[in-house]
Amino acid sequence: MSYYDGGYGGGAGYMNDSQGGTQATPGRSAAKNTLRPVTIKQILDAQTPHDDNTFVIDDVEIGHVTFVAQILSISDQETNSTYKMEDGTGSIEVKFFRGERNSMVDDDGENESSREAGLQINTYARVLGSIKQFNNKRNITTHSVKPVTDFNEVQCHFLEVTAVHLHFTRGPPESQQGRSAGGGGAYQHGGAGSYGEDTAMGGTGAAGAVSGGTMLPPGISANARKIYAHLKNRHDSSEGMHVAMIAQTTGISMGETYKAVDELLTNGVCFTTMDDEHIACMDF
């Protein structure tokens, strides 16, 4: 057992392998607090590997989503307004609950009605909500639908979507690695969700911090990053760590661990020590 000795961010510094002792799936609750910019196509394509209401995009669990789209139709009901929206990549129904809206933020009590008035058919709006699935049909429940007033926001949103997608699938750009303990760390926390089972926030925080200071190539996978950070934080191991031990302490499956270790070896940031199964990192 070992503590991560850095990056106890996010208020959840669990011991990495102490999952049995912590309550209620830390990975999932961590993902619940994330907000990711997405296209509607990504929402419709999102996978549900665990159950019908846990959505995964690019192997990363989704908490809240935000998108910019045009309103196709509006139907007002007793308790909610339903907006049918499309952004050029797909269309989805957005359910806007009044009660929830009132209780959400207190400073928008007065201009609520005028804000709704700005939401007309065919106008662009920014939605912030969460994905729900009912009878195999996905929709969004939300407490925030706001009209877009500066159309640069539309372009900005789609570029942000692309940047976040690339961050998760290829890692942060080199220029950002230096500050990945801060900014990138936020994304890394989202990453924690995807390895859901027993990934702790402390662990991913450490991953962010470590990869920030080193020369991990940009294309490296999240698992490999995590393992690298883990090895990096063990100061006692000049002889390296056994692959099985890595898998056990990081909570990554054996198969995935071998893959990730292979990646690290190929990239020359780690090397094998006394036998092929003991791995240490290069810049100890």
Partner: peptide, 26 residues
């Protein structure tokens, strides 16, 4: 839709390029 006169054209072009380079998102 009329976006008005003050919209960054380079951002529009960047979105077009992203759309076709990372088609799986769009």
């Amino acid at each position: 839709s009329d976006f008005g006169p003050n919209v960054e054209l380079s951002a529009i072009e960047a979105v077009v390029q992203a759309t076709h380079t990372y088609r799986e998102l769009f």
